[in-house]
C-alpha cells in the first residue's frame, strides 16, 4: 500500500481534552440539559467519549448503554462494562436480539443469508436498532445522545447513516483514529480496550482493518495529507503513498459525502432550509 508510510497525525492531548470537554459542557448546558447517554461498543471510540463525557458532566449524569445482539462477541460486552466501571458511571445492557430477530423473521433472506450484502444489511439493522434504543433512552433521562464517530470513519463513510453516525453532538468527529488512540491513553481508557483490534462487531471475528483493507495508521496519514495539508497527487506520491491507495481513498471519501450531509432538498422557494435559509444550530443560546 505504501513504501515508507508517513506518520499519522499527532495530537496535543492536553489541549484536545480541554477543547472537547468544554465542547460537551457548553453544547449540553446551553440548552439547559446536563445528562447524556452513549452507546458502548467495547471499542476505543465510545470508551474515549465516555471519559470526555464524565469530565464534562460528571459520572452521575452519564448513562452508558451496551446493546449486544446474541451473536455479538462476549468480549465486547465485557470491555464495555470495564470502560463504564473505570469511568464510574451507570451502565445498562439492552439486548437487541428480540428486536432484530423479529425483523429478520419477516425477511428471512436477511436473517439467514451469509452473503456480503446480507451481512451488510444485518449490520445496518443492528446499528439503527441501537440508535432507536439510544434516542429513546435519552428521552427517558432527558439527556443528549453523544456521538462516537471519529474523523477517519466519517471521511471513509465507515459507519451506518442514521445508525452509529447519528447523535446530538459528537466530540471526536474531528479527531483521526490515531489521535483517538493518543487521547484515550492520556485519559486512562483501559489498555484492554485500546489494544484490542478495532471492530464494528457486525459479525463474528470482524476487524475494521481487515474489512477496510488498510491500516488506520496508513489511511490516517494519507487523509491528513489530503484533507489538512491539501497536498497534490504528485506530492502524495513523493511522500511515499502508492497511486492505487490514493485513488482508492479519494474515491471512497467522495462517494461517501452523502453520508456526511443532511438529505438533499428540492429547491422551489426563495429560502430553502440549510441552503439559503442559514442559521447556526446554536442560534439564540
Amino acid at each position: 500500500m505504501t513504501n515508507n508510510i508517513p506518520s499519522p497525525p499527532t495530537c496535543n492531548v492536553e489541549l484536545a481534552e480541554r477543547v472537547l470537554v468544554g465542547f460537551l459542557k457548553s453544547e449540553t448546558q446551553r440548552i439547559s440539559m446536563n445528562k447524556a447517554v452513549l452507546g458502548m461498543s467495547g471499542g476505543i471510540d465510545s470508551a474515549l467519549v465516555l471519559e470526555l463525557a464524565v469530565r464534562a458532566l460528571g459520572a452521575k449524569n452519564i448513562l452508558a448503554i451496551a446493546m449486544p445482539y446474541r451473536e455479538s462477541s462476549p468480549l465486547s460486552l465485557e470491555l464495555a462494562q470495564q470502560g463504564a466501571d473505570k469511568a464510574g458511571c451507570e451502565f445498562s445492557v439492552i439486548d437487541i436480539s428480540p428486536l432484530a430477530d423479529a425483523y429478520f423473521a419477516q425477511h428471512p433472506e436477511l436473517g439467514e443469508g451469509d452473503t456480503e450484502a446480507a451481512r451488510l444489511r444485518r449490520g445496518n439493522v443492528f446499528s439503527r436498532l441501537r440508535m432507536t434504543a439510544l434516542y429513546d433512552q435519552s428521552a427517558a433521562v432527558n439527556g443528549l445522545v453523544f456521538g462516537t464517530s471519529n474523523k477517519t470513519e466519517l471521511l471513509l463513510g465507515y459507519g451506518t447513516q442514521h445508525g452509529d453516525m447519528a447523535s446530538a453532538i459528537n466530540p471526536i468527529g474531528d479527531l483521526y483514529k490515531s489521535q483517538v488512540v493518543a487521547l484515550s491513553r492520556h485519559l486512562g481508557v483501559p489498555s484492554t480496550i485500546i489494544d484490542r483490534p478495532p471492530s464494528a462487531d457486525l459479525w463474528q471475528g470482524q476487524t475494521d482493518e481487515e474489512e477496510l483493507g488498510f491500516s488506520y495508521d496508513a489511511v490516517d496519514a494519507l487523509l491528513y495529507a489530503i484533507v489538512e495539508q491539501r497536498l497534490s497527487n504528485n506530492e502524495l506520491l513523493e511522500k511515499g503513498f502508492e497511486q492505487s491507495f490514493i485513488d482508492l481513498i479519494n474515491l471512497r471519501v467522495q462517494r461517501n459525502q452523502y453520508k456526511r450531509r443532511p438529505p438533499l432538498i428540492a429547491k422551489v422557494t426563495g429560502r430553502t432550509v440549510n441552503l439559503d435559509y442559514r442559521y447556526a444550530r446554536d442560534w439564540g443560546t
Binding site: T10, C11, N12, E14, L15, A16, V19, L175, Q179
Partner: peptide
C-alpha cells in the same frame, strides 16, 4: 475560531 490540535505547545 481556534484550530490546530497537532501542536507541541500549550496553545492551539
Amino acid at each position: 475560531p481556534s484550530r490546530g490540535i497537532e501542536t507541541d505547545t500549550n496553545h492551539l
